[in-house]
Design a protein around this nucleic acid. Structure first.
Lengths: 372, 372
DNA sequence: AGCTTCCGTATGAACGATAAAAATGAGGTT
DNA sequence: AACCTCATTTTTATCGTTCATACGGAAGCT
């Protein structure tokens, strides 16, 4: 029986190095290294002996030394934004968590940094990479004419992105969410429940995400042949709760109000729900509301919402990052890796704000707003 | 005039080392090193020449090499939790952002990792530290009997914490938010506005944060001599919106309902607001509601809320971390640094859900619930 | 026996930087 | 002239690991 060496010395004077292990086991440094990195090159007997000494001394290979030798820090840089909106916070958290988790499985870690704006972010990325502090960086919240993509490509900084630009998307690796498909799936769900007058409540035009979500409504409604009777039910405003309330009120007060609305963000949707209640209507019974982003508020309020597969995006983007950096550090003779281009479909999470309609009488019968 | 070397070569074949600079400038490596780390040891003329070469070649000192030599990775480990509740997301984001920002100013960065539970977290922390991957770690979400504190202390892992345990708080460095003072400040605000029957809507007992917030209500109400008439207005439930609605409904349906409520979390408060509206009351006019955490939802809904100075905590905790790790890596002869113990007071953010009362008639006159 | 082949292990040289010690040289002192 | 001082620069050693190569010895082949 092995006597209890293990827990004998809980704190270490100074770290145990590979040489200490080698000496204690009566072998050379390289043999210890082999035991850890290429066990099949070492005779079983030696391997066991070394393994035991490693455990006894509590040896852990030094990360920095390994990084230096391999000239690969096994760190992936990622900017963290200051929190403004609720959805930003939740999505950023989910994304960072997914990145960290995916990276960790391959012994890589996420290194956080902050920056004032995308210009500063680009600089920091390049500086970190030039300094060998990161193997590459992950970008998110990409705009159609995002300057980061071009600059990082020019500097040679390996990167992958959550989102894509308008042009030269073949040049780099990205994963993105099909926002249009998201709103479309909400429409399909509502149409299946018998709705025909389905409104859309969106952001002001100009953002790629907002426009895609609007486009999804437009095309899906057209596909169902409902655009003729609903094309006036498309209203836009800024992404705030109060704006949502105002826009929804406007829709409900019109002649021929919608029996259902698809809302471009949960923030707007929370505002919209308030307008619904202010009209004495009950969401889900009298009118269906579907939000976007599946924020915690949606869960809390029973709001149906389109959920972006952020975790999946994080996994993909990190996996691609690892693939990229392993390539570049490996032999250059191999064919250049094909960049990743992946469009993911979000998933509708049905809650009470839209579900019960299925078992209700045709919504048109009850959906007349009750004015004071 | 210097011709434009600068932007000549945007991408680098392989990184420029200190030896390249030394050779190009006709000096030794060490001199280049001195130009960067101890400029006063170098003659002005030489310094200038070297500086110019550094700029021309685009040299950036290698982070990994520096870390190895200094045996200080300049990385601070921090666990990232998967997002559950909205407030968690927002607070975690604010905290991580503050850490990253504070660290960056001293050329340190945050390294993220994930873990299933606190036991796994402790193991990861120790492993990362033993491997020399981090200089130390930052803990948050500390419970009164948190096992992490003891284990990390025993392993010798330098750490600082956001929050504190019930015992041996003198042993380690922490910064915490005075939750009791937070609810108390909400009470003071409401009392100043003329409220006397002020309810409390809290989590189930057993969490340190929840209990502190409840204690704040209790002591502040007692201080104002209002406990006699309000001591029955203290209700508890789990931290969800629906629970908030249920608890608030219960309070409003009682004889002698509160004219104001202090709510332990914004999540509960969002639910409470819904109950208020369901009773045909208008928050801020008919009844005052104050939440806790100042989540984005609070901003969105005009909910007054107690805001934790998370950014300040992040700054303090990171600054302390840097102080700790600089100490331990320095000469051991110095007196052991006094640990940081800092209790910060949160700040009430007044919005419409509680503000307008100041200019209203005495709330008791209008606050009778209008039942259907 | 002498040759190659192969396996397991050991040695030296990086990786890129810096701390500590040694060398250089100009100037001043005795 | 011999010696010391000081500012500046170079040399040497080291951080902990791994790559490339070398080495010794057993087995297989001619």
């Amino acid at each position: 029986m092995t006597a209890g060496f293990r827990d004998a010395r809980p704190s270490f004077a100074r770290s145990v190095t590979i040489s200490d292990v080698a000496e204690a086991a009566g072998v050379s440094r390289q043999t210890v290294s082999n035991v850890l990195n290429a066990p099949d090159r070492v005779r079983a007997e030696t391997r066991e002996r070394v393994t035991r000494v490693i455990a006894d001394l509590g040896y852990h290979p030094n990360h920095m030394a390994r990084s230096l030798r391999a000239s690969s820090p096994r760190l992936i840089g990622c900017r963290i934004l200051p929190v403004h909106a609720e959805t930003v916070a939740a999505i950023q958290d989910r994304f960072l968590h997914a990145l960290a988790e995916a990276g960790q499985e391959c012994d890589h870690h996420v290194l956080l940094f902050t920056a004032e704006d995308v210009a500063a972010e680009t600089e920091r990325c390049t500086a970190l990479w030039r300094a060998g502090a990161v193997s590459g960086v992950v970008l998110y919240d990409i705009t159609p004419d995002d300057p980061r993509v071009g600059r990082l490509t020019a500097s040679g900084v390996p990167f992958t992105a959550f989102g894509r630009t308008a042009v030269s998307t073949e040049q780099y690796s990205w994963a993105d969410v099909d926002n249009a498909a998201g709103t479309a799936s909400a429409i399909d769900h509502l149409v299946a429940a018998g709705h025909r007058r389905i409104g859309f409540l969106g952001w002001l035009e100009g953002s790629s995400v907002g426009d895609a979500r609007a486009r999804g409504w437009l095309t899906a409604m057209d596909r169902h042949g409902l655009l003729a009777e609903s094309h006036r039910l498309d209203v836009r405003g800024e992404d705030t709760t109060s704006s949502g309330t105002r826009l929804m009120t406007e829709l409900l007060d019109r002649p021929g109000p919608p029996t259902a609305v698809v809302v471009a963000t949960d923030t707007l949707a929370v505002g919209a729900l308030q307008a619904v209640r202010d009209h004495g209507l009950i969401p889900g019974r009298d009118i269906a509301v579907v939000g976007f982003d599946d924020s915690p508020a949606a869960t809390a309020l029973g709001l149906s919402s389109v959920r972006q597969p952020i975790e999946e995006v994080g996994r993909l983007v990190m996996a691609e990052m690892l693939r990229l950096t392993d390539r570049t550090s490996g032999a250059d003779g191999e064919p250049p890796a094909e960049p990743l281009h992946r469009l993911l479909t979000p998933e509708l999470v049905v809650r009470t704000s839209s579900a019960p309609l299925l078992s209700s009488p045709p919504p048109d019968a009850t959906a007349q707003p009750l004015r004071a």
